[in-house]
Amino acid sequence: MLAEFLQFLFSGITVGAIYALVALGFSIIYNASHVINFAQGEFVMIGGMATVFMMAGGLPLPAAMLVAVAIAVCAGLALERFAVGQSRGASVVTLIIITIGASIFLRGLASVVWDRNFHTLPSFSGDEPIRLAGATLTPQSLWVLGVTLVVAVLLFWFFTRTLMGKAMLATAHNRLAAQLVGINTRFVLMLSFGLAAALGAIGGILITPIAPTYFEGGVMLGLKGFSAAIVGGLGHGLGAIVGGLIVGIAEAMGAGYISSAYKDAFAFVLILLVLFFMPSGLFGVRGTERV
């Protein structure tokens, strides 16, 4: 009984950590531009696929991972530079549709440049499972949790302790005032797309040894990450992480105790519940500000 519960919990937290990374990417871009970037899942796919093909090209795993993150960051910057940034003054809905277009383009590109097969990566440090109260935890799960934790701490430090991080938050709060104190808001936008792409790619690399990836593998991960961002409160850092874990755990529990056929539905049911009962998410601000 307990062993079964723990097993579902472990797998929920692991996949939830990936959703959290994707959700952070959504939130960072949303803060900077109020755009929901539906190409966020493609960054995840690029992270996994690029690592696979860099390794096939002879690079050792750590180097392949670095190159893969760099490729995803380039894709993110290109998306801002050539698509979103070119449409300044367009409505947010138009910008969102542009990101959907970009996601289709990136999937097509991946299927042509790489291929249409499933690929996996070796675990970073072996496959010897760790036994814990009757349940098993793979070393790769620990990698996922550890790296996500480090990334979350680094992001927290960046946004609360550095002037550039605060400048990004300031741009989110009030773009006009940010420009008037000399913040280059165009650069902030580029930086957020680069950062979001890097987060997505890191998630993609971490999850590939557990769940094989292919050129459309980013679609579901992107949507789950989006659900996580909504559940936690779009634009809220801690909310993204908590939202990711909630979606991951709900999905694992639902698949384990109810039916694995509905695995993908739980995330979207959660979105509906949140939108009905607390539309701004668990951590969302309700806009009470004196003016």
């Binding site: 002037l163 605060k166 400048a167 009030n174 005032a177 008037l180 104190v181 500000e289």
Partner: peptide
């Protein structure tokens, strides 16, 4: 430097952070 109409402070950020951002340039 401009002090904009309607003040336009960074509402959720602390007074000190607002000031520090003033020296961003």
């Amino acid at each position: 430097s401009q002090v904009p109409e309607g003040r336009q402070v960074f509402g959720p950020m602390s007074v000190e952070d607002n000031l520090r951002l003033g020296a961003f340039s």
